[in-house]
């Protein structure tokens, strides 16, 4: 790929990921072409073993493709070194994990400050921006609480504030409501809607059709390929509730 469309924050071409398990080769991704526009709200769905988690790992720069190209915010990331990938993750991607992945011994404020710490922001700036991010997710009054002093929904909001604090190019959420009850899950999804409305690019990986349906666009992955790509609303009408894969699988 030589030409890039500045409107696209994600562009993948011919993305292939092969895992070798002894003598067996598993083709987890088999030539994925995917464009995501700036400000788009995209859900990636698929049954267990479909390759959706592998795709999420590639998009999140947590793993490297065996073949193919991946441009994130105009930067070709498929050939970057480990240190360069760390910098890309820090500046361009905001992660929200199913299991929150907060550092249990630190306050909400410090947890949100961490990405800024790694990007070299000054102490005053870190404090200010982390506080703002926590206010954005409605936790301005919980800055000094540790994760074990917060509810599941509040923990996920802290994780969301941490994802937003560096003003990333994309917000990448992996089963963000998987560990939350329905009511709290809906609150988190409303936050995603708000962020999208503010112009953020949001990519959610989920097995839940209800969650997927809140996105403006849904792609379905089966056997490492994108087999369906369409508006979320339409997908919600056609989605079948089964098969359902477990959290973290796929």
């Amino acid at each position: 790929m030589t030409e890039t469309d500045p409107a696209h924050v994600i562009e993948t071409r011919g993305l292939i990921k092969i895992y070798r398990m002894g003598p067996t080769e598993v083709r987890a991704l088999d030539g994925v072409d995917l464009d995501v526009r700036r400000g788009e709200y995209l859900s990636i769905m698929g049954p267990s073993g479909s390759g959706k988690s592998t795709l999420m790992n590639m998009l999140g720069c947590l793993d490297s493709p065996t073949e193919g190209s991946y441009r994130l915010d105009g930067v070709e990331v498929s050939g970057l070194t480990d240190a360069e990938l760390a910098a890309v993750r820090n500046r361009k991607i905001g992660f929200v994990f199913q299991t929150f992945n907060l550092l249990p011994r630190y306050t909400a404020q410090v947890n949100v400050e961490l990405p800024l710490l790694y990007s070299g922001a000054s102490r005053a700036e870190r404090r200010r921006r982390a506080h703002e991010a926590l206010q954005t997710v409605g936790l301005g009054d919980r800055t000094d609480h540790r994760p074990n002093e917060l509810s599941g929904g509040q923990r996920q909001r802290v994780a969301l504030a941490r994802a937003l604090v560096n003003d990333p190019a994309i917000l990448l959420a992996d089963e963000p409501t998987g560990n939350l009850d329905t009511r709290v899950g809906q609150e988190i999804l409303r936050l995603f809607d708000e962020l999208h409305a503010q112009g953020r690019t949001v990519v959610v990986v989920t097995h839940d059709p209800e969650v997927a349906a809140r996105a403006e666009r849904v792609v379905r992955v089966v056997d490492g390929r994108i087999v369906e790509d369409g508006p979320g609303a339409r997908f919600a009408r056609t989605a079948s509730p089964a098969p359902v894969d477990g959290p973290g699988a796929g």
Binding site: A86, A87, R89, N90, R91, F95, L103, P115
Partner: peptide
């Protein structure tokens, strides 16, 4: 914890 740090961009 360390993997999370690395995921959110802390260099090795």
């Amino acid at each position: 914890e360390l993997a999370t740090m690395r995921a959110i961009g802390r260099p090795m």
